[in-house]
Structure formats: structure tokens, C-alpha cells
Design a protein around this nucleic acid. Sequence first.
DNA 1: AGTATATATCAAAAAAAATTGATGCATAGA
DNA 2: TCTATGCATCAATTTTTTTTGATATATACT
Lengths: 102, 102
Amino acid sequence: MKPILANEKTFEHYAEAFKSLSDPKRLKLMNELCARGQVCVCDLCEIMEMNQSKLSYHLKILLDANLIIQEKKGKWNYYALNQKQVNHLLSSELCCLFRPSD
Amino acid sequence: MKPILANEKTFEHYAEAFKSLSDPKRLKLMNELCARGQVCVCDLCEIMEMNQSKLSYHLKILLDANLIIQEKKGKWNYYALNQKQVNHLLSSELCCLFRPSD
DNA sequence: AGTATATATCAAAAAAAATTGATGCATAGA
DNA sequence: TCTATGCATCAATTTTTTTTGATATATACT
């Protein structure tokens, strides 16, 4: 396991990560993905009551932060939570928000 | 210990918390406070190479998020890391960035 | 081939956050 | 009481993020 060095690069890296967590819609999105597993964009639109463009914007932010995982199946694009990254960043207390069966 | 409910209020609350962590200057600030203990604003200005107005702005954000603690002594205002809140939010892996002697 | 659906992306507009310089208020010392 | 220092806060500006509506691309079905 690589140790985490307290340098500028590290601070920038994690600031980015936390930025992606800094919106209630995205936290809810993660929570829904967690509860439901793999979900396609069009279903997420309904679940989140959000138009597709906006949703894709937020999905991209989470994807870039490696907080969710994308899998394309035919016409559909499925997303799921990346539990590993969630665990890497968040306390176990908080992880319960993004952990199956809460 | 109060359980964390996955509702709108919770998402807003933690989104706020993560927003305050979403800037590399603030992460560095927390890291410095962690390494040095209680530090007054004027010393922090030099440590962070930041003007006082800007520094106070960022300190306020961390203070509002309960990530740091303020103590006034005479003319000076001292700040220190709130380890408890850091632990509440961040994984133990990450907490090492904000934990004495890293 | 033609059409419909799913989704990403783009450009413009709106909203929010950060920076800057100025000002004001305590406190402490002369 | 006068002055200097430490700090918070305000208003104006700049920068960044988010939202919106439109367009483009890929897949699948007819």
C-alpha cells in the first residue's frame, strides 16, 4: 500500500475528490446506486427526477472521481457505485450511507 | 450514537462538509494545524503564504464545518484542528494526513 | 435505409465561490 | 488617551460550477 504523502499534489488530488462529493444531488445519486446496484441512465433520470443532460453532468463528475463505475450494454449505459473508492475516502460511519442495506 | 439517515437533510449536511474539504488550500491548512497544534492567524498567514483576508475566509469555512476549533487569547485568535470531526468524516487512511506525526 | 431511443457533449446563461482591497473593531502597550 | 497590532467582515470583481436547451452519436428495430 502506497503511503499518502502530505504534499501539494496530494492536497489537490483529494480536494478534487471531495469536490465531487460536495453536492447533495451527487450524494443522493450514490446512495441510490448503492441501494439498487447497476442502474441505467434513463432509470436514474426517473429515480432522481432530473433531466438527462443534468444527470449525465453529475454522473461524469462522479465517474471522473472514480466514485462510480460505468458499463455499457447495448443501447444502455449502466452505472454502479465504486465501493472501494468510497471506502478509501470516507469514514466507516459515513460509508453506511453508501453501503448495501442501510 | 445517532444513526445517519439517508434523507435530503443528511445529503445536504454532508455535501456542505465535503465542500469545505474541497479546496487544496484548506486541506493544507488542516494539515499544518494538525502538525503544529494551536496556531494564531498571523502565524498561519506566514505558514500558508496567504494574505490575512483570504486566510480568514478559509478559516471561517472550516470553522463553520466544525473541522477546526477557535480560541481567543487576548489579542490573538488561535485555531486548531478538530480531530473528532475529521475522524467522523474521513477514512482512517486519509485521517493520517491530519493526524499528529505523519 | 429510415426511425426511435439512450446517452454524451456543447455553448450560453445563471448561480455560487474565491480573491482583493478597504474598513472597522478589539486589545494592548506607550 | 493615542497608536499599533491582530483579526473579522464588507463590497466589488474574478473565477468556477451548475443548469438549460440544443445537437451529435451510437445502437437497435422496422
